[in-house]
Amino acid sequence: MMELRKLDRDNLKQDNGLVAQRLVPWALLNAPFEGSWCVVRPGAESGAHGHHEYEIWVAMTGKAQIITAEGTTDFVAGDVVHFTPHEEHQVVNRGEEDFQFYSIWWDAELSGKFTARHQESR
């Protein structure tokens, strides 16, 4: 059964220096990860942070920079970056247009819950 989750661009919520909407999970979706659509407005930046989850960002539109302990790296539409647990990272938009990316994160607990729900549904 297909189910479509719509992005509500007019009602994105403030989240760590950017605006976002969590799109995954929802009741009928059994996924081993969670995810958010994120927009970094011109001149904005996320707070530098690290967390226990693995994370991937997929750059969708525009350009920004990622700052990590390794330095500053350009991040443009089509790029994908992976962060390991507890790796501090930050996204900065020094441009004049919105930068949009999709963030996906997971950990062993999310994976375990996915596996248990999958086994129950068989």
Rank of each mutant, 00 (worst) to 15 (best):
M2I: 15
L4Q: 15
L4I: 15
L4M: 14
L4H: 14
L7W: 02
D8W: 08
D8I: 06
R9A: 08
D10P: 07
D10W: 08
N11G: 10
L12F: 03
K13F: 03
K13G: 02
Q14V: 08
D15N: 13
N16T: 05
N16A: 07
G17T: 07
L18I: 10
L18D: 07
A20M: 06
A20F: 01
A20S: 07
Q21E: 01
Q21F: 03
L23G: 00
L23C: 03
P25Q: 13
P25N: 12
W26K: 10
W26E: 11
L28I: 11
L29H: 11
N30V: 07
N30K: 11
P32H: 04
F33N: 06
E34L: 13
W37N: 02
W37F: 06
V39M: 03
V40G: 00
R41I: 07
P42N: 05
G43P: 06
G43C: 09
E45D: 09
S46W: 02
G47K: 13
G47P: 05
G47L: 12
H49W: 04
H49I: 05
H49Q: 11
H49C: 03
G50P: 07
H51V: 05
H52K: 15
H52C: 11
H52M: 14
E53W: 13
Y54S: 10
V58Q: 00
M60F: 06
M60H: 08
M60N: 06
T61P: 04
K63A: 07
I66L: 13
I67R: 15
I67C: 09
T68F: 06
T68Y: 05
A69W: 13
G71M: 14
T72I: 15
T73I: 14
D74V: 09
D74M: 11
F75V: 02
F75G: 01
F75E: 01
V76A: 15
A77M: 12
A77C: 10
G78A: 09
G78P: 09
D79K: 07
V80C: 08
V80L: 04
V81L: 02
H82N: 14
F83I: 07
F83Q: 04
F83H: 08
P85C: 11
P85T: 09
H86K: 14
H86R: 12
E87K: 12
E87L: 12
E88S: 10
E88M: 14
H89F: 11
Q90Y: 09
Q90D: 06
V91I: 12
V91E: 01
V91T: 03
V91K: 00
V92M: 13
N93D: 09
N93F: 02
R94P: 05
G95A: 03
G95Q: 03
E96Y: 05
D98K: 05
F99G: 00
F99M: 03
F99D: 01
Q100M: 10
F101R: 00
F101M: 01
Y102C: 02
S103W: 00
I104F: 02
W105D: 08
W106L: 04
D107R: 06
E109C: 05
S111W: 07
K113N: 06
K113L: 03
T115C: 08
T115V: 12
R117W: 03
H118P: 04
Q119G: 01
Q119Y: 04
R122W: 02
